[in-house]
Design a protein around this nucleic acid. Structure first.
Lengths: 316, 316
DNA sequence: GACCCGATTTGTCCAGGACAGAAATGCGGC
DNA sequence: GCCGCATTTCTGTCCTGGACAAATCGGGTC
C-alpha cells in the first residue's frame, strides 16, 4: 500500500494525507478548496497524486488559524502568505481572555523560560517544584503556571521554542501540578469530575483547575484526557459528582466544542453543573443552556461557592 | 454542515465518519470493503448516506483486531460475529509477551481491581501509593503496575469495566508512577529520552519504563506523548541522550509503527540507541537496523548495562 | 531451508457531483 | 434604529466507481 505515513515523498512536499494531518484540514476539504478557490495548487507525482509544497502547507496552517478565529473561507483561502500574516497579526492582537496583566514577566516565569531554552529538564522541574513550595499552590497556579504556559505557547508560535521544548515543559508542569493536586486532596466536599473530550489532548489547563478546585475544598475525580461524552455522563453518575469540568484549548475546533458541550449537557443529569474553560474560540459563542463558561482561573472560586449554596438549598 | 460530530443519527446506527472513528478503519476502506466483500452492509438515510448499525460496528471492531493480529482482510471481513469471536479466542489465546505468569492474581492487583469497580478513585490512589511505599518502586512496577494494567485492559475488553473506569485507572496510576520516577531521579548516568509517536496516546507503559530506568540510574528526559519524529530526533540531539525509548500500545497500527521506527532510526545519530517496547503487533516483525525491541520490563536492565558498556568503550 | 519472481490482494487517492446545515443578507414591523 | 424572520449563499461531508503501487502470497529453483 502506498504508505501514508512514511515520508518517501520529495523532501519539500507532503502527500494529501500528510498535509491533512499537518494542517488539521480534512483531505476532502483540501480537494474542494482547490476546486473552488484555486488554492492550494499542489503539484502532482507520476500517478497524479497531489504533492503539497511545504510553503503551501505553511500557508494552509495560517488559513486554518484565521478560520478557527472566525474568518470566512472564501475570504482567506486565496490570500497570499503576506496578507495572511497581516490578517493574523491584526486579528489576534486583541485576544480577549489572555490579555489583562501588562505587568512584565514575573521573575520566576522568566527564569523558567530561560531554563527551558538553555538548560536541561531536571533543572526546570526543580525550579518549578521550588516555586510551588515557596509560593503555595494557589499563587503558583495563578501567578506562575498560567502565565508561564501562555508565554511558552507564544514563544512556540513565534518560533523561539521548538516543539520538543514545549512538550518537555508540558510534561514537567503536569507532574508538578499533579503532585500538588494530590497533596491537597480532601475527602469531603463538592465533588467535581475533570476531563477533556475526545480530540482534546491538552490537559495543562485542567491540571491547574484541579489544583484550584482542591484548594477550594472540592473532591476532584480525574479521568485523564479524551473521555467520550457518554462515558463522561456515566462517570458523573457513578461518582455522584456535583459538577463536570471540561477544558478546551485554542487548537480545538470551535464548532465541535459547542456541539459536544450541548451533547454532554443533554446527557448529564439536570442538577449536575457543567463548567467549561480554556481559550477555544467556540466558547465565546452562546453555549448550551446550563453550561457555564468559566473565564479565567479565579472565576472558579465563585462557581464552587455557587455549588455549595445550591446544594445547601436542596438539602434544606 | 452536516455535523460529523454530534449524534443526530438514529440511536442504533453511526454515520460513516463516526464508524471510522469508532473502529479505527478509514472511511475509504469501509466503502471499499463493502464493495469488495459485501460487508459491512450499512443502511442508508434519506440522502443516501451510510448508517452502520451498532451491531456491524461491533463486528468491525473484531475484524480490526484480527487484522492487526495478522489476519488477511479477505479471510475475515465477511465472517459472521460468531466466527469472529471464535477466531479471536483461538488466535489471541497464545498471546506471546503477556502470558507467562499463571500464578493467579497478586492480592494487591485483585484489591486494586475491586476498588476500581466498586469504590471511588481516591481509595484507589491511596491503595496504589501505599503499595508503592510497601514494595518499593521496582517490585511495584513489575509485580503490580504491569499486571494490573494488563488485567484492567482485559476486564475492559471483556466488558467488566467501563471506559471511564479504565480512564480513571490510567490517570491514577500515571500520577503514582510519575511521582515515583521524580523521587528516583538522579543527576548523573546514561541519558534516556522517553516519549511516544504521534497517534500513540497511551503512556502508562512509558511511565513504568521511566521508573525502571531511574532505578537503573538513568537520567530520564520525558517529553510526554505524541512527539513528532523530527522533534524526537531534535530533542535527542539537544539533550545529548544516549538512548531514545518509545512505547507502542496494542491499539497502534502495526504497519505505521515499523514505518515510524525506521524513520526515527534514520533521523537519529547512529550512536544513539533506539529502544521500543509495548504490545503493538508490528513490533514482532523485523525492525529497522539498530532498533531493539525490549520485550517485557525486566529486559530494560540488560539494555542499560549494554549502554554503559558501550559508552565506557567509546570513552576509553 | 533460503531465495526469487509472477499473480493476487489491499489500501489510498482521483474526479466531479449532490446535498443539508450554517452563515450572511435583505426586508418588514416595532 | 433595531429586532426577528425569510431567503440566498456558502461550506463541509459524503457519494460513485475507477485506478494504481506497495504488500503479500504461492510456487518453483537452487
Amino acid at each position: 500500500m502506498p504508505s501514508r505515513y512514511s515520508t518517501k515523498t520529495p523532501p519539500d512536499a507532503l502527500s494529501l494525507a500528510e498535509t491533512a494531518l499537518a494542517t488539521g484540514i480534512a483531505p476532502d476539504l483540501l480537494r474542494v478548496w482547490e476546486r473552488r478557490y484555486g488554492f492550494p495548487s499542489p503539484g502532482r507525482d507520476r500517478q497524479g497524486h497531489r504533492l503539497f509544497p511545504t510553503e503551501q502547507v505553511e500557508r494552509l496552517r495560517l488559513i486554518r488559524r484565521l478560520i478557527d478565529g472566525g474568518a470566512r473561507p472564501s475570504q482567506v483561502v486565496a490570500l497570499s502568505a503576506e496578507a495572511l500574516n497581516d490578517a493574523i497579526s491584526r486579528g489576534l492582537a486583541p485576544d480577549p481572555g489572555r490579555a489583562g496583566s501588562p505587568i512584565g514577566l514575573d521573575a520566576d516565569v522568566a527564569e523558567a523560560l530561560r531554563l527551558l531554552e538553555e538548560e536541561n529538564t531536571d533543572r526546570l522541574a526543580r525550579h518549578l517544584n521550588a516555586a510551588l513550595m515557596r509560593r503555595g499552590a494557589g499563587a503558583f497556579v495563578i501567578a506562575l503556571a498560567a502565565p508561564l504556559t501562555g508565554a511558552v505557547g507564544e514563544a512556540w508560535q513565534a518560533g523561539r521554542l521548538s516543539v520538543f521544548q514545549e512538550h518537555a515543559y508540558v510534561h514537567a508542569m503536569s507532574r508538578v501540578l499533579g503532585r500538588a493536586a494530590e497533596a491537597l486532596a480532601v475527602e469531603q466536599g463538592p465533588r467535581v469530575l475533570l476531563t477533556t473530550v475526545p480530540g482534546e489532548a491538552h490537559g495543562l489547563g485542567l491540571a491547574m483547575v484541579e489544583v484550584l478546585l482542591a484548594l477550594e475544598g472540592c473532591v476532584c475525580v480525574g479521568l485523564g484526557l479524551q473521555t467520550p461524552v457518554e462515558e463522561i455522563a456515566a462517570a458523573a453518575l457513578h461518582h455522584r459528582v456535583d459538577a463536570v469540568a471540561l477544558s478546551f484549548s485554542s487548537f480545538f475546533q470551535p464548532r465541535r466544542a459547542v456541539d459536544l458541550i450541548a451533547q454532554l449537557r443533554g446527557a448529564l443529569a439536570p442538577e449536575t453543573a457543567l463548567w467549561v474553560g480554556g481559550s477555544c474560540a467556540g466558547l465565546r459563542n452562546p453555549l448550551a443552556e446550563g453550561a457555564s463558561f468559566l473565564v479565567g482561573l479565579p472565576a472558579i472560586a465563585a462557581a464552587v461557592a455557587g455549588l455549595r449554596e445550591g446544594s445547601a438549598k436542596r438539602s434544606e
